[in-house]
Amino acid sequence: MIVEMKNIRKHFEGLEVLKDISFGVDSGEVVSIIGPSGSGKSTLLRCATFLETIDGGEIIYMGKRAAHTDESGRAVYVHHRELRQFRAYCGLVFQQFNLFPHYNVLQNLIDAPIEVQHRNRDEAEQTAMELLKKMGIADKAKAYPYQLSGGQQQRVAIARALAMKPEILFFDEPTSALDPELTGEVLKVIRQLAEEKMTMVVVTHEMSFAKAVSNRVIFMADGLIVEHGDPREVFENPHEDRTRQFLRVFDR
């Protein structure tokens, strides 16, 4: 298992956003998370990538515990210096890309490897250029984010996350901020990563993509995992009414 989330609970000012969520991701697996707006998908990814702290439950990366619930029922995290170790295991691709506008594409890709991981500049640049080639934007290495299309920016963001060599990459609706004609190029690189056995968790509204690429699908609603399983099973033969109801909206 790369990551295990056990009995995760999270609330915001009286609102229970995650109520006892458990799932794990094996090496090389692609897991899609679908569900209606407000069901807690983003919050779940933000907890998994340590942008939010959980109220209760357990987060385990590579068999090591990053957070657990103590006797008093509160979630406790490892010391923040140790937490940086755990951060290095995971990457996150945002809906809004969040590239650094004052850095060109190459700088976006090499700054963290050099400054955070203290990797050698030549090696970091070489890794970055290989990633850009894979993303089909090697010619944009010296361009600034504002000079790129949304689809290109998102591919840079994916490359930036991969440049850190994470064990697992989380995507939060990577194509939702893109014009429809640009979603294809981003989905294509994610599909390519799946073929290379990159471990990924993708929150998406692209049902055909989820069906085609993922090994497992999680359907979330109201802070709970309603249905979880084989994509064909979940999409074509859902067990729960809630799932059927949700999928019907997309079939139209």
Binding site: R87, C90, G91, F100, E115, R160
Partner: peptide, 18 residues
């Protein structure tokens, strides 16, 4: 500054000072 800049940096492992 948009909060996304802080979050992107945090996920990449930058310290607060960095």
């Amino acid at each position: 500054m948009p909060v996304g800049q802080y979050e992107a940096a945090e996920v990449l492992g930058y310290t607060r000072t960095q």
